[in-house]
Design a protein around this nucleic acid. Structure first.
Lengths: 106, 106
DNA sequence: ATTAGTAAGTTACTTTATGTAAGTAATTAT
DNA sequence: ATAATTACTTACATAAAGTAACTTACTAAT
């Protein structure tokens, strides 16, 4: 019953971006590498889902995971080139929100 | 525990766009007004959720609902100016998907 | 040597969101 | 009277996300 008249690549990208938290994770990583606990507390996502999203994004080649064997261990997540290429999308969402949403939203 | 360092307007926009189906509904409406059953079958969304999404989008002033009392009744959904303003976001997603996703995706 | 602390997760369980399929209301055609 | 069509809604099932406690690996303090 899949009436996909829509371009499958577009549909895939949209499917990814419309998963809860994905956009915000990318937004956070646009300002530089971040560690797990920083993302967790700065965006209020649950560890369970953050873990899941980072794995997905890594699988899709959008996020890179680097381990620094310090003490305690430091693990940093950052955007790959493919991930950085999502910046224009985030910027357009930012522009739209500033143009069309009220400053005092409930 | 809400550590929202993020701009609340941006967060709201992102929250909307990252709800399942929202982006695809807008994508469909960018090509002109559509009726319920057309959206339903062309994108494979369930009627239950489509109904919910259209109501939300109408509440947010993004979608307009017009009733034509023909027989059987025709109801058309279209984008408002605020909704049309989302076009650049969709276009950027389209661009990214064409630049970074393989043609043959499983 | 035991206790405590920290980062990065994972696990078990609960709540919320979405899918499925059948049902409703209004109208016209047969 | 029965069937058909559109635009939904409702009841129920499954999938996704939230919550809080637990694990592993390492070090520092008692």
């Amino acid at each position: 019953m899949d009436q996909s008249v829509i371009c499958p690549r577009f549909e895939k990208a949209m499917g990814m971006m419309s998963q809860r938290w994905t956009g915000l994770v990318i937004y956070q990583l646009l300002t530089g590498p971040k560690r797990f606990c920083t993302l967790e507390t700065s965006m209020g996502i649950s560890g369970r889902v953050l873990s899941e999203r980072l794995k997905d994004l890594e699988t899709h080649g959008i996020v890179k995971r680097d381990v620094y064997p310090e003490t305690p261990v430091r693990i940093e997540y950052s955007l790959t080139e493919k991930g950085q290429a999502l910046k224009p999308i985030i910027k357009e969402i930012e522009k739209w929100s500033q143009a069309w949403l009220p400053v005092e939203s409930d």
